Simulated scan of single mutants.
Amino acid sequence: MNEVEREVRARMRAQGLYNDEGPGLEALVEERQRAKELTWRFNMMNPTDVAGRQALARELFGPMGERVWIEAPLQVSYGYNVSFGDDVFVNVGFTLVDDIEVTIGSRVMIAPNVTITVTGHPVHPQLRAEMEQFSAPVVIEDDVWLGAHVVVLPGVTIGAGSIVAAGSVVTKNVPAGVVVGGVPARVLRPITDADREFAYRAPGTLA
């Protein structure tokens, strides 16, 4: 690893600004190209080839527990920065911007078209002129359910057992055992023992 690459990788994990392309950063570009190729192969694979899909997912991602199921299509930046616990279900359209670590716990449910990004850009346009960016790790703890079209932004931890309602944008850490929703997401209510008794609740009518 050359000095330029070493410095950029350090900035990526220290929440500093960095640019991941240019002289001396060929290895980072190659790693992203590898992820694109593996993702393309995964997305094009016959859905009946369960063993092949599972093997390719383990080649693409970092540590992966047992009984992890990921539906196609899928999009990732690096792949190897993402880890999964056991008994995880990921529905279609999952997007992972994983310049650094994304940790997904056990028994996590991810609905269609969820985006998790560890990377963002600075506010001032002069700092974005050269495509500068920053990264902060994301953690999805055990037993979390992310609803359809949820977006989880850099640096966020979602606490164990919590639910993120469909269409929410999560900009701050979520406590354990709550339902959150909205743009930006906020706590709607706690999850209690009363929720052990399931009953479908029909939606009301908008005023």
Rank of each mutant, 00 (worst) to 15 (best):
residue 44 M to W: 09
residue 149 H to I: 01
residue 186 R to T: 05
residue 32 R to T: 13
residue 123 V to R: 03
residue 105 G to F: 14
residue 79 G to K: 00
residue 194 A to K: 13
residue 115 T to Y: 02
residue 40 W to T: 12
residue 152 V to R: 12
residue 15 Q to H: 12
residue 16 G to S: 06
residue 168 S to I: 04
residue 156 V to L: 00
residue 182 G to F: 01
residue 96 L to M: 13
residue 34 R to A: 12
residue 82 V to R: 02
residue 13 R to H: 02
residue 160 A to E: 01
residue 98 D to G: 09
residue 190 P to Q: 02
residue 139 V to P: 07
residue 63 P to D: 03
residue 18 Y to T: 04
residue 181 G to K: 08
residue 69 W to I: 01
residue 56 L to P: 10
residue 36 K to S: 12
residue 51 A to S: 08
residue 167 G to I: 07
residue 130 E to F: 12
residue 76 V to H: 00
residue 26 E to R: 14
residue 178 V to R: 00
residue 176 A to S: 13
residue 121 H to N: 03
residue 48 T to E: 06
residue 182 G to N: 09
residue 2 N to A: 03
residue 122 P to T: 03
residue 19 N to E: 15
residue 38 L to I: 13
residue 92 V to A: 14
residue 93 G to D: 08
residue 179 V to S: 00
residue 143 D to V: 09
residue 40 W to S: 09
residue 157 T to K: 14
residue 171 T to K: 08
residue 164 V to T: 05
residue 168 S to Q: 14
residue 40 W to D: 14
residue 141 E to V: 09
residue 177 G to S: 03
residue 61 F to T: 03
residue 109 M to I: 05
residue 27 A to G: 14
residue 21 E to W: 15
residue 92 V to M: 14
residue 201 R to L: 15
residue 105 G to I: 06
residue 110 I to F: 08
residue 21 E to G: 15
residue 47 P to G: 08
residue 183 V to I: 09
residue 152 V to S: 09
residue 112 P to I: 15
residue 101 E to N: 10
residue 46 N to C: 15
residue 35 A to W: 09
residue 175 P to N: 04
residue 165 A to M: 10
residue 31 E to I: 03
residue 136 A to D: 00
residue 183 V to W: 00
residue 79 G to R: 04
